[in-house]
Amino acid sequence: MVQFVLRRLAQGALVLAGVLTVVFFLTRLSGEPLALFVPVGASSADVERIRHELGFDRPLLVQLANFWRDALRGDLGTSVRFSEPALGLVLERLPATLHLTAVAMGIVVLIGIPFGILAAVKRNTAVDSLVMALAMVGQSMPTFWLGVILILVFGVALGWLPVFGYTSPAALVLPGVTLGAYSIGIVARTVRSSMLEVIRQDFVRTARAKGLGDVRVFGKHALRNALIPTVTILGLQVGALLGGAIVTEFVFSFPGMARLATQAVLNRDYPVVQAFVFVTSIGVLLVNLIVDVVYAAIDPRITLG
């Protein structure tokens, strides 16, 4: 177990080195990386000074090695706009984004899983069709659109919930729903289809033959097994939520790291964008690791080795 986690951590570190390489080379995509690090309106003398300070006058591989070395020390450059370490700026806003993602994930689990079960139990009825249609709606709505509608209805028209910023826990509700909507649909559909998959198997038929009622068959025998693929899908949703946070935080003026990153792109503050990609990837990799461990814990057929 410890060995498995250690090996996965090592693999994760390798992927992270790859992520760093990608964000490094992305700056070279446009041909003139310096443009991404110079404040608007800098004089040509300033530009030359910055070029030297950032090492753009050195060979590419030396630049990459230096970038890795600095990143290992937690230095992902200095924000052009705030003149502060980019990583620090992102980490300052990480908790707000984590709260938002956690609330969204909670909503996804609490709505997606029960409704998926309901659709499977009532398969091929009007209830099933309705749940699946709603799941489809959730997956088809643009995040910004749902956010704006919720703001207009629950914030402006009804005045029930705060719609801007993050001043109280209540301010997490609307952004949480907005962020979770897409994943609710996916999770509900996955739970439904894996329930139906399990129901067809022999041990469920045996349970039925023993004379067990619907509640026991579905709740005990089928659900446990159906939840195994759901764990994978939930893990994948963390990445989707962190990406979706970019739009959600923007719409709700939510002071998280994703909004910081969007502003950084608009202000051409590339070090902050790099730090954001870095922190997000660490999050995704950690979640993948947790999913694998949980997987082994709930499925006795899988052994970690």
């Binding site: 992927v15 992270l16 790859g18 992520v19 964000v23 992305l26 446009s30 990445g239 989707a240 792109v265």
Partner: peptide, 24 residues
Amino acid sequence: MRLVDLQMAIPFLVLALAVLAALG
């Protein structure tokens, strides 16, 4: 496949943001 792994570690929209930031 390592390239695929790498991209799986960066959420879709986050990568899109980073690439657009570089390209304009």
